[in-house]
Measured scan of single mutants.
Amino acid sequence: QVNIAPGSLDKALNQYAAHSGFTLSVDASLTRGKQSNGLHGDYDVESGLQQLLDGSGLQVKPLGNNSWTLEP
């Protein structure tokens, strides 16, 4: 069960990665100043990332080996 409060997208993504045990490689300029609506409930990694990114204009991309990145 994930419980991440709304706020900074950077912070939300870092909390989610730490909670879910995956690696997220992101260029900080992509997420700077963006906000997230947070995340509450049970999600697989990709669904949770998509939910956190909702409205940010960013997309999640798998890199393999439980690693992910973001792209515009």
Rank of each mutant, 00 (worst) to 15 (best):
S36D: 01
K11E: 15
W68R: 00
T31W: 05
D27P: 09
A12D: 02
Q59L: 11
L49F: 08
G41Y: 04
P6W: 04
P72I: 12
V60F: 10
L30K: 00
R32C: 15
S47W: 05
G38Y: 04
Q15T: 09
S67A: 13
A5Q: 11
L63T: 11
E71M: 11
T31V: 13
L49V: 01
S8M: 09
F22H: 03
V60A: 15
D42N: 13
V45T: 07
A5D: 10
S20G: 13
S29E: 14
S25G: 04
E46M: 14
V26S: 08
S8R: 11
A18M: 12
D44K: 05
S20A: 15
S8A: 12
G7R: 00
S56E: 01
N14Q: 15
S8F: 09
T23Q: 11
L53T: 06
A12W: 04
G7Q: 11
V26A: 10
S67G: 08
D10V: 08
Q50E: 10
V60R: 02
D44M: 06
K34Y: 08
D54I: 15
N3K: 10
L49N: 00
S47L: 09
T31L: 14
L24V: 07
L52W: 04
G55W: 02
W68Q: 01
S67V: 15
N14D: 11
N3A: 09
A5E: 13
A17W: 03
N66E: 04
G21V: 04
A28L: 11
G38I: 02
Q51D: 05
Q35P: 03
V2E: 03
E46V: 13
G38C: 05
S36Y: 02
N37D: 08
I4R: 00
L53D: 00
V45K: 03
V60E: 03
L13H: 02
Y43Q: 03
Q50C: 12
A18C: 12
H40D: 09
D10I: 11
S36G: 03
L52G: 01
V45E: 04
P62R: 14
G55S: 06
S20Q: 13
G38N: 03
E46P: 09
G48E: 02
D27G: 04
Q15Y: 09
F22K: 01
A28C: 14
A18F: 10
D42P: 08
N14H: 14
G48F: 05
T31C: 10
L49A: 00
S67Q: 12
N66Y: 06
A5T: 08
S47F: 08
L30V: 08
L58F: 04
N14V: 12
S36C: 11
S20R: 14
V2Q: 04
F22D: 02
P72G: 08
L30N: 04
Y43L: 05
A28E: 13
A12Q: 04
A28W: 13
D54K: 15
L53E: 00
D42F: 15
A12L: 09
Q15P: 00
I4S: 01
N65Q: 09
Q50N: 12
L52A: 03
Q1V: 13
W68V: 03
S36Q: 09
G55Y: 04
P72W: 10
V2D: 03
L58K: 00
K34Q: 07
V60D: 00
L49C: 05
L24I: 13
Q15S: 09
L9R: 03
L52D: 00
G38V: 00
L30F: 07
N65W: 08
W68S: 02
G33L: 04
A5N: 08
S56T: 15
K61G: 04
A5W: 09
L39H: 01
D42Q: 13
E46D: 07
G7W: 00
E46H: 12
A12T: 08
V45P: 07
S20I: 14
T31E: 06
P72R: 10
Q35I: 13
S20P: 01
P6H: 06
I4W: 01
Y43H: 08
S29G: 10
D10E: 13
T69S: 12
W68Y: 14
D27N: 08
G21R: 07
R32F: 15
H40T: 12
V45W: 12
H40L: 10
D27K: 07
G55L: 05
S8K: 07
S8N: 10
Q1F: 15
G33H: 08
L53V: 13
N37C: 14
A12R: 03
S36A: 06
L24N: 02
T31A: 03
L9N: 00
L13G: 00
N65F: 10
K34H: 09
A28T: 11
Y16F: 15
S25L: 15
A18V: 12
Q50M: 14
G38M: 03
Q15M: 11
P6Y: 05
H40R: 14
S36W: 04
N14C: 15
L63I: 10
Q50F: 08
Q59S: 12
P6E: 05
S8I: 05
Q1L: 13
S29F: 10
V26W: 15
V2P: 06
N14P: 00
Q1K: 13
T31N: 04
G48Y: 04
S20H: 15
S25A: 11
L24W: 07
E71W: 07
V2H: 06
N66R: 04
D54R: 14
L52M: 06
L70H: 02
D54C: 15
Q59F: 10
Y16W: 14
G48V: 04
Y16E: 01
Q15K: 07
V26G: 08
Y16Q: 01
G57T: 02
N65T: 08
V45A: 06
Q15F: 09
G33R: 04
T31D: 06
G21W: 06
P72V: 12
G57M: 05
A5V: 07
G21L: 06
N66C: 08
K34N: 03
K61A: 06
G38F: 01
G21P: 00
S29I: 10
G41I: 05
G55I: 03
D44E: 08
G57D: 07
F22V: 10
S20L: 15
S56H: 11
S36I: 02
L39G: 01
S36P: 02
L53F: 03
G64H: 05
L58M: 03
V60I: 12
K11P: 03
L52T: 00
F22Q: 04
